[in-house]
Simulated scan of single mutants.
Amino acid sequence: MTRLIYNTATTLDGYLADDSDSLDWLFAVPGADEAESAFPAFLEGIGAMVMGSATYEWVYDHENLAAHPEKWGYGDRLSLVLTTRDLPRVAGANVRFHSGSVRDAWDELVAAAGAKDVWVVGGGDVVGQFADAGLLDEIRVSIAPATLGAGKPLLPRVLGSDRLRLESAGRAGQFAELVYSVDRPAAGPAGGSDA
């Protein structure tokens, strides 16, 4: 069965990015290379990805994909971007834009993933919409030794301890790595419509 996995890094106080959508705090953490060493193995198990427009735009700008589309680091797997706006496309990448609910996107993501999983790349509201729809299966979070005080939250929803089960805890460089399974509710409500 295809699982929906949220795999991300966060600050100690639970922010993905600062108020300007910057990830500079993440690149400043010593030992980030060690923390990223397991990423290629994780990506091998991913058949499709989904992200919000802010995440997509950050990657597009940060990697200068308009001039260097070869820097698209996700291969030919489907990357579904949730947005209601017109965004630039990465030449040669399997990027599609979706303006409906996450529940409406789910069948397309599962079909594209095949026997593999779907990765919610970001952001917090996108994964929140999938959690609201009862589709989130796993949260993998690397906690960095940094605080921002404000910014884009890790997951702006309430998920009680009755739905989360710690599967593993580890360390990679300066990062604490936690994996939680998420119990899906018996019947989830319809998801949101935009990222």
Rank of each mutant, 00 (worst) to 15 (best):
A186F: 07
L16I: 14
A17N: 09
Q174S: 12
G191M: 15
L80H: 04
L65M: 11
T11I: 15
P153G: 00
E70R: 08
E34I: 14
A54F: 07
G122W: 15
H68Q: 06
V81E: 09
R103C: 06
F175I: 05
D104K: 04
R140Q: 13
G134N: 06
V118D: 02
E138Y: 05
S142N: 10
S101F: 06
V121R: 01
Y15M: 10
A17K: 05
E108C: 10
P145C: 09
A190R: 11
Y60A: 03
D125L: 13
G173K: 06
W106F: 14
S168P: 08
A48T: 02
A169F: 02
L164V: 08
E34G: 01
V179D: 03
A48D: 05
A41E: 06
P145V: 09
G31M: 03
S161C: 04
R171L: 05
G100Q: 02
L78W: 09
A35F: 14
A67S: 05
A190I: 09
L148M: 07
F39S: 01
P153N: 00
G52D: 00
E70M: 08
A150V: 10
L16V: 12
A38W: 14
R89P: 02
L26D: 02
G188M: 05
G45C: 06
D125W: 13
F97E: 03
A28K: 04
L178T: 01
A17F: 10
D61E: 15
S142D: 09
D117A: 10
E138G: 03
R77N: 12
D33F: 12
A144V: 14
G122C: 11
L87P: 07
K71A: 07
S193G: 12
R77G: 14
A28G: 09
A67R: 04
R163S: 07
W72V: 01
D13G: 06
D194M: 12
E57N: 10
D21Q: 07
R77V: 15
N94Y: 02
V110F: 05
L12R: 01
G170W: 13
D183F: 04
D137C: 10
W58P: 00
P69W: 04
A105C: 14
S99T: 13
L16A: 05
